Simulated scan of single mutants.
Amino acid sequence: MSKYFLLVLVVLFTATEVQAGWWDKWWPPGRRRRSPPPSRPPAPISCEYSPEEKQRIIPIESEKAYERTPVSYPVERFDVQSAMVTRPWLRDFRYIIVINKAATGRTAQSIMVFEDGYPILQDRVSTGRETLELRRRHETCLKQPPNSYYSVTATGYYPIQQLIENHRSESFDADMPYSMFYDRSFGLALHQVNEAFLSRLGSRASGGCTRLRPGFAEELFFLVKKTKGAEIPVFKKDGSPVLLENGQIKRTKTISTSDGRSSAYSAIVIIQDIVE
């Protein structure tokens, strides 16, 4: 009798309609565990603007970019002998660093370093691309600047403001070894070139800084570093000295940096744009 009873129960349980009704009564569909759908990897984010995007944002970003771009000042062709006559205060600098950012010509994209008025170092460099750099398309695109600007290496006269041996650019997520900052407000510096851009020395290829060959950058960095604490003349970016009320040139042993003020260096950077 018990065998027949068990057989009936099995038949009733396995019957489709009875099983479905009993199952749903005691375990409603909402309480059942369901396997999650298979996850798909997120689509890769492109850091490149489409032609349509560029057409839309370039007019807007080009206007904003001017606010983040340094102003250039006229600089005549540098000749050390005549410069010492027209600007005698230059003699107070141990090192005069002259960069020609011209795109073409015999001395285009070059650097010459003078020590006490005598040339000691010369090489090819890479200055700014001189073009509109669009802000990063997405926050993960770290090789692009956070804000639009023009990659201009501005001409003018600049003091060395700060030395950082192992600096890393937050804007471009890139190393800048042996950085010699001369315009901290715009993040402009002389620094060692990344190995990937070594072949571009001699052309306009940077984001605005001046890239130097490995070895050259290190040597110049430590030459300038030895002059820390010097008293230097105060001058403007157009190359005119700042005068006191008595007509004497103002002098200082400290200079403004991103962290306030620090000891001055006996080095001046002169950036020109001369085709010759």
Rank of each mutant, 00 (worst) to 15 (best):
G247F: 08
E245S: 13
A267K: 01
S35W: 11
M180W: 01
F78Q: 03
E245M: 10
Q162V: 07
P241C: 08
S50K: 05
I274G: 01
R204T: 09
E133P: 05
R34C: 09
R200A: 08
E219F: 09
I58W: 04
P214S: 11
A230Q: 03
L212P: 00
T127L: 00
E195V: 10
V275K: 05
E218P: 04
M176I: 08
A205K: 02
V275R: 06
Y118D: 07
S258I: 14
G128W: 00
E17T: 15
S82G: 08
K237L: 09
F197E: 04
R251K: 15
R68F: 14
L190A: 01
L198C: 08
T86P: 07
V75E: 00
R94A: 14
A65G: 12
L201V: 07
Q192T: 05
P38A: 12
T14L: 15
P146Q: 06
R68A: 10
E61Y: 10
F93N: 01
I60W: 11
F197C: 03
R77K: 15
L244E: 12
E219M: 10
I232G: 00
G30C: 07
R31V: 10
P51C: 06
L190G: 01
N246I: 05
K101V: 07
S258P: 08
K236T: 09
Y182M: 07
F5E: 14
E67F: 15
Y149I: 03
Q192W: 04
P36C: 08
A83H: 04
G239F: 06
Y149M: 02
Y95H: 03
T86M: 09
P88D: 13
G229D: 10
A205S: 09
S35R: 13
V85Y: 11
E133L: 13
T252V: 12
E139L: 11
A189Q: 01
G260K: 06
R124W: 03
S258G: 11
I271C: 04
V242H: 07
A108V: 04
L90M: 12
P44H: 08
Q161T: 01
R213S: 09
T16K: 14
R40T: 12
V85N: 10
R137I: 11
E67A: 15
V113A: 00
L90S: 02
F222N: 07
S46V: 14
T254P: 02
R91N: 13
V75N: 00
E63S: 12
P145G: 04
E53A: 09
K101E: 03
L7D: 12
